[in-house]
């Protein structure tokens, strides 16, 4: 008498167990989708938010940074802060805005040393190798140097002066007889510290730092620049070409001769 009742009981409980497992798995799937989609959307970082030195790509950083804020505590300047609730930077992650407070490029990189997880790469030992972003002179129409004035502030404050930002001499086409000194960023040297953006004397900065993937172009792999190839080879790639004299535009070459 006891036998059949137990087996019915166990099949009922097995059915219930399977139903519960199915429900739970469905719940886990649904919740994971919601959280995952939210996380995907919340990952987008505004262009002016820069990560501390040693942070990898944004994806790598959000897998590694546990948002403890120890980098913020050991930053000797008011540069680093943690994203607040409701900001458009993933909550609790460290960042800085160059125009508010740039990275001062400490030699001992205390923020990287403070990081317990390695989200800020401990192999970054020289701050000059940091890659927080890349400065871009975004607005030639307002940059004072482009107008022929000698502002030069972005170049002057650059911690890698004459390496990351140089002043390139060009003719002043407006006056026809003066020079303009164009602040020119060199991406192989620029660390993205943001001191140039911070110091730009305009109401709104004409030079700004963006995460490198937003700031840097990339030439097609198949491109070959003749003059580079020539320099690499040490001589012209094609021999026996007669080099004719170049004609300069009238308002440049003519004026100088």
């Amino acid at each position: 008498m006891g036998e059949p009742s137990t087996s019915t009981k166990s099949s009922v409980s097995r059915r219930r167990f399977l139903a519960n497992v199915a429900r739970a798995a469905g719940g886990v799937g649904a919740l994971s989708l919601v959280v995952g989609l939210f996380a995907r959307q919340a990952q987008s970082l505004p262009a002016q938010a820069l990560r501390p030195p040693g942070a990898g790509t944004e994806g790598e950083f959000l897998a590694a940074c546990i948002r403890c804020g120890l980098c913020v505590r050991d930053c000797p300047y008011p540069t680093l802060g943690l994203a607040d609730v409701g900001e458009d930077v993933p909550v609790g992650t460290p960042y800085f805005v160059a125009r508010r407070a740039p990275c001062e490029m400490c030699d001992d990189i205390p923020c990287v040393k403070a990081c317990p997880t390695g989200a800020l790469d401990p192999n970054l030992t020289s701050i000059d190798d940091a890659d927080m972003g890349l400065a871009v002179l975004v607005d030639e129409e307002t940059c004072l140097n482009f107008q022929g004035l000698r502002c030069d502030v972005c170049q002057r404050v650059c911690p890698l002066i004459n390496e990351a930002i140089t002043l390139e001499l060009h003719h002043n086409l407006r006056t026809g007889k003066h020079a303009v000194f164009i602040p020119t960023v060199h991406s192989d040297k620029c660390t993205g510290c943001g001191k140039c953006e911070r110091s730009c004397v305009l109401e709104t900065a004409a030079i700004r730092v963006f995460p490198r993937h937003l700031a840097k172009g990339r030439i097609g792999e198949h491109y070959r620049l003749g003059w580079v190839e020539k320099e690499n080879k040490g001589e012209s790639l094609i021999q026996g070409i007669v080099d004719l004299p170049d004609r300069m535009p009238d308002n440049l070459g003519g004026g100088l001769k």
């Binding site: 886990v28 994971s32 939210f38 994806g59 959000l62 897998a63 909550v91």
Partner: peptide
């Protein structure tokens, strides 16, 4: 779900 999401998205999604 929290752990599955971290695994799939490659970020600590729950910490958002």
């Amino acid at each position: 779900s929290v752990l599955v999401t971290a695994l799939i998205t490659g970020v600590m999604a729950w910490e958002m």
